[in-house]
Design a protein around this nucleic acid. Structure first.
Lengths: 260, 260
DNA sequence: CGGAGGTTTGAGAGGCGTCAACCTCCGTGG
DNA sequence: CCACGGAGGTTGACGCCTCTCAAACCTCCG
């Protein structure tokens, strides 16, 4: 559990010092934030809340006056089509400032819900206005965080537009592993992912049935297994190739997945 | 040419006063920017440059120290897959701050190129730092602008994940009409669009051949025509239905396309 | 023990891709 | 003035990937 001294210790120490925001931008230039900026951000968090699995957090269109940073668990953002079929537009991991974009926009154009049980920290928008007035550098870090989301959106567009079923699933697993690894929540190609096969289908523009067949193919090719909410990557080189995955878009500064 | 007094006059007056940035956030809360903020932004523009059609503007990965606002013409952002097939991730119209996201991030995760001939205004990142230090409200407007791009990305994910060929093309045309109409560059369901059928295919995750067949279907259904870079929407209600289009995500404050 | 949700597998249909041919348009150059 | 070439548009034949519909099975849990 503590075999990896450098990464895990660094992660744990930071999370101990900043229990609510310790994973924010970790692996992406968090180290370039000053201790004061980290402290200001941590102290801006208002309340910590827990929510159960499969719980609605924000509905499309409703005005928002606070934003959530994810501390533990997984959250997804999604949109429904006319017949009620979902399309996930993002999956969030601890350290993500899930709906910070609601601060400049004032409302959201999509729904937000939990996957597994989660813990989030709330940030009042009034307090964020204070940050933009007194801490321009920290403001640019926050802005940057919302732009990483945009970069991931672009990659999802690429995935849906240009890859087949195998590539789409492989790409999703590559992305999640890279992101979880950055915040110290994945090691040795393994990580938890509280998704069902229909959930994966909604993320990849496929049907549950076809996801099932495609997962079998990936398993038979020796690339990965996915069972009971646990992902085990067996051949990450091969998985990256199938996914046409290049982690540049994650703006990581410690990437082990630089597979240009 | 000047049949629409309200919209066109408003547009023209604003563009006369702010020749480089007059269309920025037009139809999206530009009116909530103070005259001083508009002036500061206009005066921050360094140089105006012209580029020919089908010209590379920025390459993936290279460091950037300035950003472009589009004044005239069309620009696209795109990514290439392993075999060189493109996926467009956005199409930009005048008033768009095309690569403002390069300011907080310092580099881009995709390529940018012109479609037709364009005119752009350059903004030095050093000058933008100055804005974040002295104009927090204007900073939030700039941030907001980058988040509209993210909202459009999400809608593109939905389009590719959940719609068939007809819906994808219809959705793209709905979006472009709504955006061009906001900045005074589309009326009566008509607008210019310097794209080929293969270009549309790259935007919609289809092949050129299938785009051709699908355009014919849309034409036969009496929804729209697309010929020689000119779009004519014949039945926008029907087009919106086919596209499952709802313009909320464009954050317009004057939308005629509110088709919940 | 029974039911619900998720997983797995099969059979058949359809949407979109691939390959190929031919067309028009238009700029270039002999 | 006409020949030529290239890019984009159009249409047809065929095949594959993915969807749809269906049923069986499995596991968890009340």
């Amino acid at each position: 559990m503590r075999d990896d001294p450098t990464q895990s210790d660094q992660t744990d120490g930071e999370v101990a010092r900043y229990p609510q925001t310790g994973r924010f931008l970790m692996g992406r230039g968090r180290t370039r934030m000053t201790p004061e900026e980290r402290r200001v951000l941590e102290d801006t968090a208002m309340a910590v809340k827990d929510y159960p699995a499969r719980h609605h957090l924000v509905r499309r269109g409703e005005p928002v006056d606070s934003s959530m940073m994810l501390i533990e668990g997984y959250v997804t953002r999604y949109m429904d089509d006319r017949e009620g079929y979902r399309q996930l537009v993002s999956v969030h991991v601890p350290g993500d400032f899930v709906d910070l974009h609601g601060f400049p926009t004032g409302r959201l154009d999509h729904d937000i819900g939990t996957l597994g049980p989660v813990k989030v920290a709330l940030f009042d928008h009034q307090a964020l206005v204070g940050i933009t007035e007194r801490h321009p550098t920290l403001t640019r870090f926050l802005w940057f965080a919302t732009l990483i989301d945009a970069a991931m959106h672009r990659e999802w567009i690429f995935r849906l537009g240009r890859l087949g079923a195998e590539g789409r699933l492989a790409h999703l697993f590559c992305e999640l592993y890279a992101r979880l690894e950055m915040v110290g929540l994945a090691q040795d190609g393994q990580f938890d992912l509280p998704l069902t096969q229909p959930d994966l289908a909604e993320a990849c523009g496929l049907t549950g049935v076809h996801v099932n067949r495609t997962l079998r193919t990936l398993r038979e090719r020796g690339l990965l297994t996915f069972k009971n909410g646990r992902v085990e990557i067996l051949d990450h080189r091969g998985l990256c190739t199938t996914a046409e995955f290049n982690s540049d878009y994650l703006y990581s500064d410690c990437g082990v997945w630089k597979t240009s």
